[in-house]
């Protein structure tokens, strides 16, 4: 049916109609502000990042070392047992070459988010971060990497205290 309609009735809406107020618009800027408690586990994790270390929690029932740390084991549903430092090296579990940033800006240098299995933590335990100092075409699953830390004076107890992870060869 619609194929037969050559001229649609009505007037098309243009951007300028919105900008110049020819049609009703509502502008509203939400003030949704939060101050989340990081909690016992993540607060310590962030504090340790500031000190240039990665810390995990261990569960002695399933014998796993969990990172990022948590105060309870989701498998065993019991409190975790102790703090354990783990290495700042690991293995790429998966990665993606991102040509578009979160705000849809196209990137000349692709961003390389990766899930990194951290050495010293249990298999499957890792953190999502970014790869750097590597050409996109050289990244592969199973690649060994090492954290590149922000200068100590500039760390602020944030996941960005690690700038990125770079290729690394075990000595």
């Amino acid at each position: 049916m619609t194929v037969n309609i050559k001229q649609w009735p009505g007037t098309a809406l243009a951007t300028r109609d919105l900008e110049q107020g020819h049609v009703l618009t509502v502008k509203y800027k939400p003030r949704a502000e939060y101050a989340w408690d990081a909690g016992v586990a993540i607060a310590r994790y962030l504090e340790e990042l500031k000190a240039g270390r990665l810390i995990a929690r261990s569960c002695k029932q399933c014998d796993r070392i969990l990172i990022p740390p948590r105060m309870f084991c989701e498998e065993c549903f019991r409190p975790t047992d102790s703090w354990v430092y783990v290495e700042d090296t690991g293995t790429v579990n998966t990665f993606s070459i991102c040509h578009v940033r979160w705000d849809v800006v196209r990137l000349d240098q692709p961003q390389l988010p990766a899930v990194i299995h951290v050495d010293g933590a249990s298999p499957g335990m890792g953190i999502l971060h970014l790869l750097g100092e590597v050409a996109p075409e050289e990244v592969y699953i199973g690649m060994k990497v090492k954290a590149v830390w922000e200068e100590a004076s500039r760390r602020q107890g944030s996941i960005t205290d690690i700038r990125h992870w770079k290729p690394w060869k075990e000595e």
């Binding site: 989340w36 408690d37 990081a38 909690g39 016992v40 586990a41 105060m71 309870f72």
Partner: peptide, 27 residues
């Protein structure tokens, strides 16, 4: 207010008590 603990830790505490009260293993 409950400074220092996360919503996850808050929920875990209540859940642990409820399962203990019922005498069950949630897993």
């Amino acid at each position: 207010c409950t400074p220092g603990i996360s919503y996850k830790e808050l929920m875990y505490e209540a859940a642990t008590r409820a399962y203990d009260d019922a005498g069950i293993n949630p897993r």
